[in-house]
Write a protein that binds this DNA or RNA. Structure first.
Lengths: 344, 344
DNA sequence: ACTATCATTGTATCCGGTTCCATTACCAAA
DNA sequence: TTTGGTAATGGAACCGGATACAATGATAGT
């Protein structure tokens, strides 16, 4: 009999202890337990001690679902994204996590594989506010969010509204200045390694590139656009193809859609027996970790990712705690001069 | 009056629509709404259509807290970690996210800044099962978890139990083999760039290093241990100090606790005007992205991170769906021969 | 001793869903 | 017309907590 009892005890114990169990063991009501555990200062110290002891004995930890359902607050900030791949994201999330912790919020990163799952998570009240880095979220989705009163900060698109802010990089100007720098070095025939067609950064960077060229009084027709697709491999192949079909008046400098693209291009140039920056200058975007380790060290545009992350959290908490409107913030980047660019 | 009404309407509308609102608008009970929206096949098509229309009109999306509280299921797998920094984590999480999506689970990554927050999140029923990559979780915590019936897979420590599995790399053997390789190249005086004292990987790697040396009949006293702390800067300084105090019979090869450490050491060697691998051979661990871009390309131990991630998800789902016991799995790494090692 | 006051504790409701079970409506067979 | 059966819908309990409010008990003032 004793054996069976022990077994039953174990099975019963497998079920998570609830506030009811704690109340029963401490011989008080559940409301008193709730008060004691949440630091409401009305419980007699003696009773509180008994409750804490009971809670500890039962390995009690509150069910967050119940807690959050009733209180309507999660005390959690959610980051929603379609991809955690790449160095950008983890630099971002690292600072976000620190900033969120400093403000005594919890952090939850949700990776949704499709749009429905994303919106469900976003609208499912699993967080008090959202930081969104997801290209699939369109304006209609944002309207939904706003309608449900969930504050959000967008990182990949400039938007703003009643409870909606955005913090983006100044891709156009960065590109404009980088291109200007290549022109200043004496290059007159430039190439652009394009990223994805529907990507905002790609679009802005390409526009900046074009505008700088026009502003210098040069002809866009002399320029070359290669499909780099933001990838090393695609850029390598695109550059390889270009090099074999090079004309008499070849391009001497390339602006790449991002660093990976720049690296792929440089590898193709090197594989063809030519040199960077002697034969070609190349500039990237993002200043990923590899950029400074690469040979030659990459001249690239550095975006203040940590600053963006910090601002995103600050701004979201502002939206959460005040009833003020959201705003658009644009952060300027910086051209890091390294060894992949030289005088023409 | 109309203006005020409109205003009131707006304010009311700001509140999220609940299942009750949908029921009211569709003129049915909430249970029917629930059935209709969850695909229970008892609702008359006509009614269902009316409900769907109402739900859409109200921008209704269910509150996940309520849903999960009642059903006791979250359909979500949680990843719990103390740090997302570094390339290891994002390679890991990328594969995890794909695997989880393929199994039709949601994914939530929780970054807890302190132990209490971590355990609260872990024990708060916010996920059906957990993948834990957090050095702060000790055996007592795991007992808690087991006691609450939450299945978990540990990634940084070999453990197993009723609902607990682990998937770790074979750090000891990897280190043993890497050291053996250095010995095979003719090196007789070796150095180890140590990581954190309390880190399991560091401990295993150091043990493997020592055992390989002993097995070769060499004397441990001839070996050198530098404090690299898994960081580039600390390793740079440790190596710099070592080089200035070098003896007549210097070490010719180093095993570093990780790649960053190896890179720091190599930079110090180069800064001192010497060369790798001509003067010193250096081996790292992890095969981070930079390793192959670095000059010289780093000889390092490659761990099958994607495989670990895939197995973690598969194993966790096994624990979730069957009542079988957990297990320990150890994955072998592979020594990637590149350009930072040479014959003595 | 009686009562007002305050410190504690208990009761009941609610949060937003799911789900079991009862109820209703409808139709065909007797 | 009655009955039986099934399809469709509604009612109510419940998940685990928080919280407003009621109730209790103790203490002190008169």
């Amino acid at each position: 009999m004793i054996v069976i009892k022990t077994f039953l005890f174990k099975v019963i114990n497998l079920k998570k202890a609830t506030i009811k169990d704690v109340a029963q063991l401490a011989k008080v009501s559940i409301s008193t337990v709730s008060n004691a555990l949440n630091g409401v200062n009305v419980v007699k110290p003696q009773t509180k001690a008994r409750i804490l002891k009971a809670a500890h004995h039962l390995n009690y930890s509150p069910n967050l679902m119940g807690k959050q359902l009733r209180s309507g607050q999660t005390n959690t900030i959610g980051v929603f994204t379609d991809s955690v791949a790449g160095p950008y994201f983890y630099q971002l999330i690292e600072t976000i996590s620190q900033a969120v912790a400093a403000k005594h919020y919890g952090l939850s990163v949700t990776l949704a594989n499709n749009h429905t799952a994303l919106m469900n998570a976003l609208l499912g009240n699993t967080c008090d506010g959202a930081i969104i880095f997801d290209h699939r979220v369109d304006d209609r989705d944002l309207e939904h969010l706003a309608g449900q009163g969930i504050p959000a900060v967008m990182l990949d698109r400039p938007v703003s509204g009643e409870r909606l802010s955005s913090i983006v990089f100044d891709s156009f100007n960065e590109s404009y200045l980088a291109t200007q720098y290549l022109l200043k070095l004496g290059h007159r025939r430039l190439g652009y390694l394009a990223g994805y067609d529907n990507n905002r950064d790609n679009h802005e960077r390409f526009s900046g590139f074009q505008q700088a060229i026009l502003a210098a009084g040069l002809n866009l027709e002399d320029m070359v656009v290669l499909k780099g697709l933001f990838e090393e491999k695609a850029s390598f192949e695109a550059m390889q193809t270009y090099l074999t079909t090079a004309t008499a008046q070849p391009v001497t400098a390339f602006l790449a859609g991002n660093d990976l693209s720049a690296i792929g291009a440089i590898k193709a140039i090197q594989a063809a027996g030519q040199h960077v920056p002697t034969d070609y200058s190349v500039i990237g975007f993002d200043d990923i970790e590899i950029a400074s380790y690469f040979q030659p060290a990459l001249t690239t545009v550095h975006n203040p990712i940590a600053q963006q992350a910090q601002l995103a959290v600050t701004e979201l908490i502002r939206l959460l705690t005040t009833k003020q409107w959201g705003q658009q913030q644009v952060l300027p980047g910086e051209l890091k001069l390294r060894d992949s660019t030289a005088q023409c």
